[in-house]
């Protein structure tokens, strides 16, 4: 455990000692702020329209009851953030192993009394720290809303946890891709494409219609599992899905790192 923490701490400190991470955070905040602002404005326009329609009171109450901040503002904007994550997380994971291989520091790790699992988990935890920071920054927007409205706390927290799990799955994928090459650019590009595939696989499922094959594709797609959480519901099947994806890619990473010894 001490090995894992040493590697994770170094990884995180290194990431935070270069401007790259801060630039990414800033770009993300600008983009997320814009999306969030648009969702909020759309929400307000809709409310105004309903009010101007002069509906009978009981109908008005019924319609207005569907208008809540969580479903209309927080949920949709976090759904959009998930697309940004597909582009952003690979930029955080691309250096994980590719840089160690290019610098020759992988030689230090592999000749130290560390197991391949310790190396992989340490690296992964370090990257996960950055994903945590991204999610923490995302939380600022719902918190702003609390000053002016009363969004459901639990539902919001569920959505943020979902976003974190989703980011964690992408990070595991990114670490694996990074372990395959010495080029960070290549690692980032391939990770983005692979992440998009994971995200859009359910579109293929829609085209495939019904049947066990389509069901499987639907299950493999990451979006459905993430969107559940925006309702504030994180079910055991969804948790299992994220755990399986993460363990799957970390196991591949371990194999890939261990295989360096055999070249």
């Amino acid at each position: 455990m001490s090995h894992v923490l040493a590697i994770a701490g170094r990884e995180l400190r290194s990431l935070l000692s270069t401007p790259v991470a801060y630039v990414l955070f800033a770009v993300y905040m600008v983009f997320a702020g814009y999306i969030f602002f648009l969702s909020l404005e759309f929400f307000l326009v809709q409310i105004q329209q309903v009010q101007m329609a002069r509906l009978p009171p009981e109908q008005l109450v019924e319609i207005m009851s569907q208008f809540n901040l969580n479903d209309r503002v927080i949920g949709p904007s976090m759904g959009t953030f998930s697309f940004v994550f597909v582009l952003l997380v690979p930029l955080l994971t691309m250096r994980a192993f590719a840089e160690e291989r290019a610098n020759g520091t992988i030689e230090l790790l592999l000749t130290s009394p560390l197991t391949a699992w310790e190396i992989v988990l340490g690296k992964y935890l370090g990257v996960l720290g950055l994903v945590g920071i991204l999610v923490g920054l995302t939380a600022l927007y719902p918190m702003l809303l609390m000053a002016y409205g009363d969004p459901e706390l639990l539902q919001t927290a569920g959505g943020l946890l979902g976003l974190f799990l989703y980011g964690a799955a992408l990070a595991a994928l990114g670490c694996f891709v990074s372990s395959l090459t010495r080029s960070q650019t290549l690692a980032a590009t391939v990770s983005v494409v692979a992440g998009l595939m994971l995200l859009l696989i359910d579109v293929v499922a829609e085209l495939a219609g019904t049947g066990p094959g389509a069901e499987l594709l639907r299950y493999l797609g990451i979006r459905a599992h993430f969107e559940q959480s925006l309702q504030g519901v994180i079910t055991t099947p969804d948790l299992t899905y994220f755990a399986v994806v993460i363990i799957f890619f970390l196991t591949l990473t371990r194999t890939s790192v261990e295989s360096l010894r055999w070249r």
Binding site: R10, G104, T105, S112
Partner: peptide
């Protein structure tokens, strides 16, 4: 190794301490 396995962004004592920990 032939090329010293260094992390260019770290400080000298931080780096040596890190290596000591993983060793």
């Amino acid at each position: 190794p032939e090329t010293p396995p260094l992390y260019p962004e770290m400080r000298v004592h931080e780096y040596v301490r890190y290596v000591a920990r993983i060793k």
